[in-house]
């Protein structure tokens, strides 16, 4: 086919006269669904990144269990470190997985596609929500893989039905919140490379928590931070619930943290989007 040939027979158009009214605008839900399908399609074709995001959490778990696990005394009665570390690995991989959202958002801002979306009256929320939805689906896949491999190497969860439900809710809430924070970072960064650099810090948030070692072993100042940072209640509730313990209001504290982080991220990303597209 050639670049010059073009079909003839453009449909006739009525010129002049009063301006026509544009077709009724589709809603926020349609826009978000279309944007989520787009983000999923794009990330499913980004094979390298997809393999990394699926393999990395499993590698992290294997490293912790087999390299460090023998040297860590968690002070729990569970006989193996894998029982202790799975929640931490899940949150760590949520952080890593969410970080790709920043790069994807930043790529969008770099090209002309945001202008096209805006000219179709698609606002910041559907664009970002689409990326966050895709990130959530990706993360749930890697979470399922982590659970699968953990079962193979000796993880024996004892959670009740309701316990599993709460585990799912806490995980999804954190994935969504971290992804939206990551989306805001993608708007803040001037280049996709910078975006990916910024999110590196977020991926490290699980380390100063009870994710991999009990916080009592940390220096006092870090101990205080580790006990009160947003990742800790999530780790504590996941661990407790998976071991079949009663967790009281810890899961609610975790969900409240996630809701708070999400609210801040949505508000910040709205403002950042307006600034970036001014």
């Amino acid at each position: 086919m050639s670049d010059t040939a073009l079909r003839r027979g453009t449909p006739a158009r009525h010129s002049g006269g009063p301006p026509r009214h544009p077709s009724p605008a589709p809603g926020l839900l349609t826009h978000t669904a279309v944007m989520a399908a787009r983000a999923l399609r794009i990330s499913s074709r980004n094979t390298d990144a997809l393999i990394t995001s699926l393999a990395l959490p499993i590698m992290m778990m294997l490293i912790f269990v087999y390299f460090f696990g023998g040297a860590i005394d968690t002070g729990t009665d569970s006989d193996s470190y894998v029982m202790y570390v799975v929640p931490g690995v899940l949150l760590l991989s949520a952080g890593f997985g969410a970080a790709t959202t920043a790069t994807a958002v930043s790529e969008d801002m770099k090209g002309g596609i945001i202008d096209r979306f805006r000219s179709l009256d698609v606002g910041a929320t559907p664009v970002l929500a689409g990326h966050v939805a895709a990130s959530t689906v990706r993360n749930l896949c890697s979470t399922a893989l982590v659970f699968g491999v953990a079962l193979l190497i000796g993880f024996r969860p004892a959670a009740s039905w309701s316990g599993w439900l709460v585990v799912g809710a806490v995980l999804v809430a954190y994935i969504v919140a971290l992804s939206w924070i990551s989306a805001a970072i993608g708007l803040l960064a001037r280049t996709p490379e910078a975006a990916s650099g910024f999110t590196f810090f977020m991926s490290f948030l699980p380390y100063p928590s009870s994710a991999f070692v009990p916080t009592e072993n940390m220096p006092d100042w870090l101990h205080g931070f580790a006990d009160h940072q947003p990742i800790t209640p999530a780790i504590e509730s996941l661990r407790g619930l998976l071991l079949g313990q009663e967790m009281g209001d810890t899961p609610w504290i975790a969900l409240a943290w996630a809701a708070g982080m999400l609210a801040v991220a949505v508000a910040a990303s709205g403002t950042l989007f307006r600034i970036r597209t001014r």
């Binding site: 077709s23 399609r41 794009i42 096209r116 000219s119």
Partner: peptide
């Protein structure tokens, strides 16, 4: 919104997804 419904913009950077 009415303006956006009546116009088409083709910018300097192709506003389509590469993948």
């Amino acid at each position: 919104s009415a303006v956006r419904g009546s116009i088409s913009l083709t910018g300097q950077f192709a506003a389509v997804d590469e993948t």
